[in-house]
């Protein structure tokens, strides 16, 4: 993606971004900017394209149009699935991701375990965890990657109230340390965040009745 001139503090900036799901444009003309220490909450009804936008920002799928300026090595994505291996223990799961992202496992894993209150579970196989515990493990992965921009898709699914508070605390610390995050969530986490309603960016279908172009629309 090409670089755009943005405010110095911006760690991620998109302009005129359009993204597609299944070959059909769902979102169009999105402008967003994210500064260090800032969180952005994506809102909108189901199916509006929150996941699609997050995947595009994470570089998992190409944008249809527009510019995206972000350091791809600074981004970490957490989707609906946790990427947790049932056969590995909690520590092994986290250690693997730490090695993968090139951080020092001993130090980061201990911090992540503590932050998400997984202390008593470290030697349990992840397959025996409850859904909420697994989710916490999935979120703990964010900490061991050592990356600044978190792209989170429904991070609070299957978390209980206490765990949500735990997550909000982690979030607050992350932002205070100069990190940034874009979340798709329906819950109010009680952290200072701007919100962006994606319904406003719904792609308008090009109406061309008797003339069809390359994209068949």
């Amino acid at each position: 993606m090409s670089q755009t001139v943005t405010a110095p503090a911006a760690v991620m900036a998109a302009s005129g971004l359009a993204c597609a799901r299944g070959g059909i444009a769902v979102l169009d003309r999105i402008d967003l900017e994210l500064a260090a220490g800032e969180a952005l909450v994506l809102r909108g009804p189901n199916g509006v394209g929150k996941t699609t936008l997050l995947r595009t920002l994470a570089g998992l799928q190409p944008a249809l149009a527009g510019r995206l300026a972000v350091d791809p090595e600074g981004v970490v994505y957490a989707g609906h699935l946790d990427g947790v291996k049932a056969m590995l223990t909690v520590t092994e799961n986290l250690t693997f991701w730490a090695r993968c992202f090139g951080t020092e496992p001993r130090e980061t894993v201990a911090r992540a375990v503590q932050a998400f209150d997984l202390d008593g579970l470290t030697d349990r196989a992840a397959g025996t965890l409850s859904a909420g515990q697994k989710r916490r493990l999935g979120l703990a992965r964010l900490l061991v990657t050592g990356r600044a921009i978190w792209l989170l898709d429904e991070p609070t699914v299957s978390l209980d109230t206490a765990s949500v508070a735990l997550f909000a605390a982690v979030m607050r610390r992350h932002l205070a340390a100069g990190g940034a995050a874009i979340l798709a969530t329906h819950l109010d986490l009680g952290i200072p965040a701007r919100s962006l309603d994606l319904s406003a960016f719904k792609a308008r279908a090009l109406i061309e009745h008797d003339d069809f172009n390359e994209a068949f629309l």
Partner: peptide, 16 residues
């Protein structure tokens, strides 16, 4: 296996 549990998405965004 990595596809089903979402690890593939994460591996694709990892520095590897």
């Amino acid at each position: 296996l990595d596809w089903e549990d979402g690890s593939m998405d994460l591996l694709a965004t990892a520095p590897l």
